Computed example of a mutant assay.
Amino acid sequence: MKPIINFEDFSVVDLRVGTIIAINDFPKARKPAYQLTIDFGDLGIKKTSAQITTLYKKEDLMHKQLVAVVNFPKKQIANFMSECLVLGAVKENDVMLLHPEQPIKNGTPVL
């Protein structure tokens, strides 16, 4: 387990629901990954990369909703600029995306 944090530490993390609107292969990534374009409603469109190629095919990801951290600074990954961090659970070294059980408005905060 990681160190205990207080509520104020957690409260600055901005978790939002978004919908994947575009998926591309990311051949320059060190580990197999996709480049995702995600619609966060009023927060706009953000891009990220995700190492989810073993559990997800591109066609299965289109229009899928997921949860992401949207208030990280941009990060250069190979020749790509990542603007958010999608959340997932690790199962046997594979990442399973966290997502709402029912469709919900893009940009909805996760509490």
Results as ranks from 00 to 15, higher is better:
14 D>M: 12
38 I>Y: 02
68 A>Q: 00
67 V>K: 00
37 T>H: 04
15 L>N: 13
32 P>K: 13
62 M>Y: 13
98 L>I: 15
20 I>K: 01
43 L>N: 09
108 T>N: 00
71 N>D: 01
40 F>E: 03
33 A>H: 00
111 L>F: 02
79 N>Y: 06
23 I>E: 05
83 E>F: 02
63 H>Q: 13
90 V>R: 05
110 V>Y: 01
75 K>N: 11
99 H>G: 12
71 N>M: 06
54 T>C: 01
9 D>Q: 14
19 T>M: 13
47 K>E: 13
44 G>W: 10
93 N>C: 00
79 N>T: 13
23 I>Q: 05
73 P>A: 00
73 P>S: 12
92 E>F: 08
106 N>S: 10
71 N>P: 01
76 Q>I: 14
44 G>K: 08
60 D>L: 06
93 N>Y: 11
22 A>N: 14
88 G>P: 02
52 I>P: 01
98 L>V: 15
69 V>N: 05
78 A>F: 02
59 E>C: 11
43 L>S: 13
37 T>D: 07
21 I>Y: 04
21 I>G: 01
1 M>F: 04
31 K>H: 11
21 I>W: 06
77 I>T: 11
102 Q>C: 10
34 Y>K: 06
64 K>H: 09
101 E>M: 04
26 F>Y: 07
43 L>T: 04
6 N>C: 13
103 P>C: 03
39 D>K: 11
33 A>S: 15
42 D>W: 01
82 S>V: 10
108 T>G: 06
63 H>W: 02
32 P>W: 07
40 F>Y: 10
104 I>A: 04
91 K>F: 05
9 D>M: 10
26 F>R: 00
86 V>A: 14
35 Q>K: 15
31 K>P: 00
1 M>K: 05
67 V>W: 05
76 Q>H: 10
4 I>G: 01
65 Q>A: 03
20 I>L: 08
106 N>R: 05
40 F>L: 08
49 S>E: 00
96 M>I: 15
23 I>P: 06
58 K>V: 06
77 I>Q: 00
96 M>H: 12
46 K>M: 15
13 V>R: 03
70 V>P: 08
28 K>C: 04
